[in-house]
Design a protein around this nucleic acid. Sequence first.
DNA 1: GTGAAAGCGCTAACAC
DNA 2: GTGTTAGCGCTTTCAC
Lengths: 338, 338
Amino acid sequence: MIGIAEVARYAGVSTATVSRALSGNGHVSPATKLKVETAARELGYVVSSTASSLASGRMKNIGVVVPFLNRWFFTSVVEGAQRALLRNGYDLTLYNLTGDGIERQSVFEHFLLRQRVDAVIAVSLELTEDEIFRLHALGKPLVGVGGLIEGVRTLAIDDIAVARLATEHLLGLGHTRIAHIGGSQHYDLDFHLPTNRRFGYEAALTAAGIPLDPELDEDADFTIQGGYHAAKQLLGRPHGRPTAIFAASDEMAIGSILAARDLGLSVPRDVSIVGIDDHELAEFFGLSTIAQFPQGQGEKAVEILLDQLHPGQHDQVELNTPLPVKLIVRSSTARPGE
Amino acid sequence: MIGIAEVARYAGVSTATVSRALSGNGHVSPATKLKVETAARELGYVVSSTASSLASGRMKNIGVVVPFLNRWFFTSVVEGAQRALLRNGYDLTLYNLTGDGIERQSVFEHFLLRQRVDAVIAVSLELTEDEIFRLHALGKPLVGVGGLIEGVRTLAIDDIAVARLATEHLLGLGHTRIAHIGGSQHYDLDFHLPTNRRFGYEAALTAAGIPLDPELDEDADFTIQGGYHAAKQLLGRPHGRPTAIFAASDEMAIGSILAARDLGLSVPRDVSIVGIDDHELAEFFGLSTIAQFPQGQGEKAVEILLDQLHPGQHDQVELNTPLPVKLIVRSSTARPGE
DNA sequence: GTGAAAGCGCTAACAC
DNA sequence: GTGTTAGCGCTTTCAC
């Protein structure tokens, strides 16, 4: 292992100068800087991140905590975060909390607190007060993505507004019997996201003067399978079949499309279906949806954190811009048939 | 930040003893060990991983490099690896090589080599000789998952055998016009996986005395969309429609099922379809497939690496057990219709 | 079984 | 702008 001393000797300068030249902290004349860089390259020198971290207190590493990995939203956020971090010379350490609470406790007790990360991104994860307290106590910036965390800067779309917009899209087309497929209480662990989307749906109906019909509300688990099952129940009933379905996620909306097909119903002629996400399969299924941009959310989370870690070094992140969403109308929604 | 010194003082021992007691390296009397553990807990002490790494040379961190994240196979491997690492007190640093080659170079130049990881898992990634050489030069164990890497211990199913098995399943049911949807040359970047699966398909047909028909071979990109498009071409032709399709991945097989439905063909009555993977949606679509177990592959990769890092400390990993695969027959395959 | 002390390789004052 | 040097907080010989 070739160290900073060799580089210094080779370049004919001190180790301090090598450190400064390579890290960009502190002033070094352009000439020496070049000399050092050349020396480092020729010797194949790479800083020891542990030594560097120990001396500087900076890890150049941020922790990303997700509840699952096998979901489009989460992996997209991680991809976005990864890309932004790579650009800035940071590593991404991934903590996947799938499974029992023991894993979760372990992550907090022994990993995050082990001074391995400069900051933490919590994706769709409700942290306990204690967990937040401990992170704050360590001076670790923390940002949430995908749901509100008490007392923590969070990046999340306005679930109520988005659900309302989706429902209004259906109302605007002339639908009045609009069903909702949303999350069950069980799924409400993180952030009341299902609850908020239901609120948006109900608000839109109420504003349009349409009474809520509990018969038109089915629970599902945010998967294609779950959406399929729920839609079957809604669309299979002999009387009062809805003419439109608002599913709280694209996965469930896709399941609904498949359910409609299996029942011999045509989308959108017999039933219109709208989702939320703009999932990678949404276009393939012609699904009308409200796009959110999870990769962008991951990138933005990183920018916010880096801004906190190095104030003023980055383009000022617009902290208060609401997250973008976009209604994308494809072929799964139309005016109700006669 | 409370350090090892405080714990030592609090427990009335030396820092050396604290280190030994907490890390399990070296002998400490049960009594002192208990004292130290109590002290550490009461003071809320957590080792500084950077200091520990610098002093010991161990990072307790392994790097996982993937070409994408938004694919079921990759996230499954990562999940499995993560779980196994967590159990062993290791962190997982994720490198996603999506995008241009610059990212890739950057990962190798500035990240992996920065002494951040003890070992590397490369998932479905063909490494260059130079990349392998550099990792070996650093003494970093390396294991590949999902494809052979020259000169590197690799975990991969036998693609030829698996493809052959899938094809034989169709042959055994009595099919003779069996189409293949596989990867294009373009996708062949990593490991000739598509090529190997094609070989297996061809071998099965040849062994059964069935001549290969280039008309029955379509390229796709391993996505649902790609499989859909390819299957449409195969199933839409007026003459010589295949009675069965072997798709080289479940995503493409699912796309094929959807294509058949859209053409008004019934699966499996009009066309049988088999895939490879046992994707999370396979059961939902009733897809017959050859299961591989990516989570298990990720776990096993970790076990192999830990075994190399701490020889003899773990249950001996069976290095030479072939990776398990399993034919799962569901409702997408049947005898050909009349 | 336990303690003393010498590093691990770098960064950041502080001097010049 | 550059060099000197004292740590950063542990681990690990080497004594005892």
